[in-house]
Amino acid sequence: MTTQVFKIPDSFKKDVRYTFCPGCDHGVAVRLVAEVLDELGLTQNTICAASIGCSVTIYDFLNIDTIESPHGRAMAVATGVKRAKPDKFVFTYQGDGDFASIGLAESMHAALRGEKISAICINNTTYGMTGGQLGPTTILGQVTTTSPTGRNLEYYGYPIKIAEHIALCDGTAFSARVSLDTVANIKKAKQAIKKAFEVQMKGLGLGFVEILSSCPTNWKMSPDKAHQRVREEMMPVFNLGIYKDVTQS
């Protein structure tokens, strides 16, 4: 008698080559999304709005209907999808630059309208696909290809704390920041994603999860060191936690 303890989620494609950089947390995040879609029985009732950046390739890995959005517009595209087909489960998968820089207006307004959609935002403090430039979440002092001496206030100002901002919007039902640096945190991340999906299914409003994620390639670090950076440099600025949960109040 054997028990299956590990399987590839049904929402995950079986026959594709994984194209994220080695050690990148995107892979874990996408897998968590797939597991939650499976567990909530959503795989065949979901439409995803993909974004621009490393996150765009989500449609290569998941067995779900997907539309690619222009840079920053995933929340607007998702709004259109959901308003046209309110009975479908709709989520976006974006990076911090897409969600909180070029798409900040779309993101905030979707939250303010209380769109019944879910949004996953990968925060890796840089523009990954274009080669590691300064982004809206780049932390003070961080060296990037467009902040060669580190982010300073004079030239760049402050990074944005996305989960806190989204939590402030009255239409947000759930907003949390999680991390993928340890197994325990990965488990918590999955719970948060599930919650963000469930609030949509219950029609409570926007469900949002910001995922602190490593980018070993652009950070020029080993995967281990990258996770260490997530803990030591990112978490003090971007505190983990649930910032809003209407089901708890």
Partner: peptide, 22 residues
């Protein structure tokens, strides 16, 4: 039917794209 007062024309055209994708 669906109506949204979009936050900008950027959002409006992309909402239209989203709806049309269905």
């Amino acid at each position: 039917r669906a109506y949204v007062s979009a936050e900008s024309e950027l959002a409006a055209i992309n909402m239209t794209i989203g709806a049309c994708s269905t």
